[in-house]
Design a protein around this nucleic acid. Structure first.
Length: 188
DNA sequence: AGTATGATTGCCT
DNA sequence: GGCAATCATACTG
């Protein structure tokens, strides 16, 4: 039944990002299945942890399965799930969710009732979940997907460094993902 | 201490 | 399609 599939996040970010597609993320009862992620593994020039540990990225070096939340462009809160081993500094950015639980709270926070726009994009996910710096280091609440989901890999979005790496994962066909829904299928 | 920059979004033309 | 908003963080001098 539910524990048939176990989630092991003590793996590299790329594997974790692919695995997380379809898992349901809940924050205080609000959330839904993850449909889009991006991996920021060790040695990734685009990762906040690339230049070593700082006050901001410290949560990335914590236990796998915990949150790393940061402020983007002074406006948005972006939600990451830490993976790898403690001290690695790896994380997976949650870019989009399929709204499922606590939709009314999402609508209120987002200021829109368009289901496709509630959790589409990293900043929107953070806003919809009511994410803030208080989440840093807290364990993420994740539940297994009902069945297999079809996952595609593309290049990441909105970064300058290592922008050619196929480290963005999405559920194929989902209307809730941000950005392009197609790209060269990299080797998974 | 001061400055440059960003894992974005939404509104503008 | 292009660009402004907005500020904490990180780097420079």
């Amino acid at each position: 039944m539910e524990a048939a599939l176990t989630l092991d996040l003590s793996v590299d970010a790329v594997s974790a990002a692919r695995t997380l597609i379809g898992w349901t993320l809940l924050v205080d009862g609000v959330g839904g299945p993850i449909v889009e992620t991006e991996a920021y593994p060790v040695g990734d020039a685009a990762s906040h942890a690339f230049r070593g540990r700082t006050d901001r990225n410290a949560p990335m070096f914590g236990p796998p399965g915990s949150f790393y939340v940061y402020r983007s462009y002074g406006i948005h809160w972006c939600v990451n799930i830490v993976c790898g081993a403690v001290g690695d500094g790896q994380a997976v950015l949650v870019r989009a969710l399929e709204p499922a639980a606590g939709i009314e709270a999402m609508i209120e926070r987002r200021g829109t009732d368009d289901p496709r726009r509630l959790c589409r994009g990293p900043g929107c996910v953070g806003q919809a979940l009511g994410a803030g710096p208080l989440l840093n280091g807290a364990p993420a609440e994740l539940t297994a997907p009902a069945g297999e989901r079809s996952v595609a890999a593309t290049t990441r979005i909105g970064i300058a460094q290592a922008s050619d790496r196929p480290w963005r994962f999405l559920e194929t066909g989902s209307p809730f993902v941000s950005g392009p829904r197609s790209a060269a299928k990299a080797a998974l």
